[in-house]
């Protein structure tokens, strides 16, 4: 500890990590911000300092209020997906974490079951989306079952390539992000607190509401940040499961990149970034994440 050389050790040890994040994360974000003020021709981008791209992004948005412009409608629809997916994954994730922590007594069983819920996270999301097609399609299993049961005479169309399938797939992929942090918070709860609540006459719901939820707050906040930021920026699930017909904040950017309108895409990316950061900042007010580490 005393020799002079060791003072610098943490710096070179952290250097590779810092280098990667600087070159592939910080610098790209700075460049995106810069390019959002540039102009472009068909094949290249040129330095300038114009607000045109932001004007294009919010074309007629404020003049036409209270009617919503395309950008506002896109963000509203993205936020709606966020809210839906957040609510469903929260209830589902909380229930499953609760089951694993408080209802499963054997640690081995708990680990195996927890692993069972996380394994799909390590497999391909695209395949997990594609795998809904034989179930939800016009001739899919669900429509076959519905028609055989005589519930409908014609295949139901809204099962696939719809808001329904987008929500379903986002829940399918992202519930794990709720389960893991909530499970982590919950398993640190001292069991004697639960017994104390029961001994003092609290019912099951009262215990959940007044003891378990407040003590799982950090996990809930971390899970919420994950799910909300993923859905806010999503363009893969919304594209694939929405049949490329549903707009989202992320998809707008993707479309503009494909059209080589890089400065406009950059402006939209900065707007999306600002919205996401605002949401994260709000959520962080509920919780001190550093206490968790």
């Amino acid at each position: 500890m005393l020799d002079v050389k060791s003072r610098w050790t943490p710096y070179w040890q952290a250097a590779p990590l810092a280098f990667v994040f600087f070159v592939f994360f910080v610098l790209p974000l700075a460049i995106t911000f810069m390019v959002s003020f540039w102009t472009y021709t068909g094949y290249s981008i040129t330095p300038a300092f114009v607000a045109d791209n932001y004007v294009t992004a919010f074309d007629k948005c404020f003049a036409s209020l209270p009617d919503l412009c395309t950008t506002f409608r896109t963000y509203l629809s993205t936020l709606k997906f966020c809210l839906m997916v957040w609510l469903i994954t929260l209830v589902l994730g909380f229930t499953i974490a609760y089951y694993l922590v408080f209802e499963i007594k054997s640690p081995t069983t708990r680990i195996v079951l927890a692993l069972l819920t996380t394994i799909p996270f390590w497999t391909s999301n695209v395949i997990r989306m594609i795998s809904w097609i034989p179930l939800l399609g016009r001739n899919g299993l669900i429509n076959q079952a519905l028609m055989n049961a005589g519930i409908t005479s014609q295949p139901v169309d809204w099962l696939l390539y719809s808001s329904f399938s987008v929500t379903l797939s986002l829940v399918h992929i992202n519930t794990v992000f709720m389960i893991v942090p909530i499970l982590n918070s919950m398993s640190r709860i001292d069991k004697s607190l639960i017994e104390a609540a029961y001994d003092n006459g609290a019912g099951a719901w009262q215990t959940i509401w007044n003891v378990i939820i407040p003590l799982s707050k950090t996990g809930i906040a971390i899970g919420s940040i994950f799910v909300i930021t993923v859905v806010m920026g999503d363009f893969i699930s919304i594209g694939l499961m929405g049949g490329q017909q549903i707009a989202s904040a992320g998809k707008v950017i993707e479309t503009q990149i494909t059209a080589l309108q890089f400065p406009i895409a950059a402006a939209n990316a900065i707007v999306l970034l600002a919205v996401v950061l605002m949401i994260v900042w709000t959520l962080l007010r509920f919780v001190d994440i550093r206490k968790e580490l």
Binding site: A14, A18, P28, L29, M232, F262, A269, L272
Partner: peptide, 27 residues
Amino acid sequence: TLFFTAIASLILPSIVVSLGIALEFQL
């Protein structure tokens, strides 16, 4: 700073990161 950069890299929208890297390399 390094720690929060890592967390930010985890939660900021992937399309923004992807676009940023594409722009950087185009420059």
